[in-house]
Amino acid sequence: MSYFLEGLKQALALLFPPSADILGIIGLSLVVSASATLLAGIFAIPTGVFLAVTEFRFKRLVIGLLNTAMAIPAVLIGLLVYILVTRRGLLGFLGLLFTPWAMIMAQAFLAFPIITALSLAALKGVAKETKDLAFSLGASPLQMSLAVIRQGKFAFLTAVIAGFSRVIGETGMTLMVGGNIKGETRVMTTAISLETMKGNFELGIALGLVLLLVALLLNVFLQLMQGK
């Protein structure tokens, strides 16, 4: 127990003030995960809206697949992206392996089904009514979709934050495609994992605290938005 307290003390010392190394790790984590979430959201939200407002033959099947995709082990996505960007892969010529780009790509794949499915689930209640309402007042299909998006904006925020939380905490997959290269692709989770293996608990604890803080802030933000 004493070495945990000792670790905590040293961890706090590492954070106040933080070294450039630590700031770099935290910054990269946030940038990579935020970019991935943004990228996924750009595709996921319209997909969720589309699924919520249109009727087509295999809709149930598509939704089933989407829910299955939410449960795909991240490590499989890591494998998929690795195969895609490795030198012999389809995108090998871009040389993306072990760069933040590959990490963003993998995290976006991970976040996409989460954001889509959560948006869809949250829209289910309002989409049909908003669609009827907008169409009955003369909206075009595009204007109708915008009305649905407006009506469901908190739902999207929740979905996006859930997606972000999932990807910023992801370790194995990020390690596979990023490589945990110091100063280049080392993010909070991969750093924690490595430092813990090496017995350097203090850095692990410090970064763990930052991750917790990020989660806390996001939830406070969400509560404030919804409470409005």
Binding site: E129, T130, D132, L133, S136, A147, R150
Partner: peptide, 10 residues
């Protein structure tokens, strides 16, 4: 179209 259960925009 006027709906039986009024649909109101936020």
């Amino acid at each position: 179209f006027v709906f039986q259960h009024p649909l109101i925009l936020e």
